[in-house]
Simulated assay, not measured.
Amino acid sequence: MRQQRIIIIFLLILGTAARAQDIHFSQFYETPLLRNPALAGLFTGDYRVQTVFRDQWNSFTDAYRTGSLNAELKWPVGNGNDYFTTALQVLYDKAGTAALTTTELLPAFNYHKSLSDNKPMFLSLGFMGGLVEKTLDLSKVTTNSQFNGTAYDPALPNGETILTPNVHYLDGSLGISFNTAFGAENANSMYVGFAYHHLNRPKNSFYKNPTVELDPKIVLSGGVKIGVNDYSYFTLYADYSRQGPSTETIGGVLYSYKLGPDPDNYPYTFTLGTLLRWNDALIPVIKLEMYSFNLGLSYDVNVSRLNTVSNSRGGFELSLSYIGLLDRNREKTPAGFHDPRF
């Protein structure tokens, strides 16, 4: 009953009203740095590489294609239980007819302070910051100024004053998270986090208008992993974000089953689940873990008012991740150390 109450309470946070935001992923748990730089390093191992590709709105417009690549490396600090994580987040997004393209290169750092000598329990503080570039293909832009009264005339000027169709700026984010294990033999784990993105309010105008800047964005994140038995477990994820007047709430439940005769040394894990982006999409998810590799596939079933045009078709996502050890001959957690993990 206690585990059931945890699941019910966790799902209730999905009831917050929301409106869709710009760049996002349905498999948001595969892009931890975009959620919160203080979520870097929450895995069992020394390093992790994750990539996600998203293809959206192919059913009725020029596709929105988004790709994310992040890499994390962590190591213990001194002789205590503290850890340090360095990471890099790369993002590429190309949207719409005018080919609005966004490229982000964001290094990140996260310090995990151990709060217990008896079990994994960490308070983490992370920072991420780097360069962002946005470009626009003016040859694909059409405006009302190119309407000659009877038809569209591409020879007419578009009337826009964009001289250089690119924007460059520095962007920064801060985050804090709490991560711990609980239950019998610390078999369960959970985390909560808070992040503040665009803390420097970067200028973001193709017209070079100094008054146009990005609103800061706050993100509240949480996750709980609860074992059912030696072979299966539930994982619950949820994020709530707010940027200016826009909000987004997404979360859901995944059920995983280990395949193999030994639950402590299993070659495969099969996962099924469903996510919900409130007032936007229902998202079935399938995932296969093969040793150190994880392969995930999801599809957005559009349930917003846009489904009249989209016929409920949203976008698909493909994710791939790898978790490894620097020393293949040792266990995932060095003797005497607790590992920040989820």
Rank of each mutant, 00 (worst) to 15 (best):
L220V: 15
P210D: 11
G175V: 03
T180E: 14
T211R: 12
L199F: 14
G193S: 02
N200A: 13
P165L: 13
V309I: 13
W57K: 03
P76T: 01
Y233R: 10
L254W: 04
R2K: 10
M128N: 12
A18N: 02
I226R: 07
Y29K: 04
D93M: 06
F206W: 09
D153I: 08
L236W: 05
L320R: 07
F28E: 00
A281H: 07
N209R: 05
V167A: 03
D264Y: 09
L318K: 02
L100H: 09
S124N: 07
G126I: 03
T51V: 07
K134A: 11
G260M: 09
V141P: 03
D22Y: 05
L236Y: 10
N118T: 11
T150P: 00
H198F: 09
F337M: 11
E248D: 04
F122D: 03
L73R: 07
L325M: 12
G172S: 15
Q50G: 00
T211F: 12
R330L: 11
D55S: 14
S246I: 01
R5P: 00
N144F: 09
I283P: 00
D327S: 10
K119C: 01
R48I: 06
E317Y: 06
G80C: 07
N294L: 10
S221R: 07
G45R: 11
G80S: 13
D262Y: 06
K287C: 05
A87D: 02
P165A: 13
A71N: 00
V192W: 10
M290Q: 05
A95W: 05
L276F: 12
S232V: 06
M128D: 06
T61V: 03
G15F: 10
T102K: 14
Y299V: 01
R313L: 15
I7Y: 04
M190F: 12
D55V: 03
F178N: 02
D171Y: 07
R242E: 15
G244C: 08
L73D: 01
T269Q: 15
T86E: 08
E72M: 13
S189K: 12
G296V: 00
R328S: 11
L288R: 01
V90S: 08
L275Q: 03
R313W: 05
L170T: 09
K287I: 00
N179K: 08
Y47S: 05
G80A: 13
I6R: 11
N311T: 03
A108M: 10
H197S: 02
V253R: 03
G296H: 02
I323R: 12
N229R: 08
I286C: 07
K208A: 14
Y231R: 14
S304F: 09
Y152P: 00
N279S: 13
S189D: 15
N79I: 05
F43Q: 01
S319P: 01
I6Y: 11
S298V: 02
Y237D: 03
P37W: 10
G222L: 09
K119T: 09
S173H: 12
S319E: 02
K332A: 11
P267R: 13
V301C: 06
L34D: 05
R19H: 05
N81G: 08
D153E: 12
T103K: 14
I13H: 08
G223R: 05
Y152S: 04
Q89C: 00
H197N: 11
N200Y: 07
R341A: 15
N311R: 14
G251Q: 02
S292E: 14
S292R: 15
P334V: 03
F178A: 06
M121K: 10
V228P: 01
A151V: 01
V141K: 10
Y64S: 05
L106D: 01
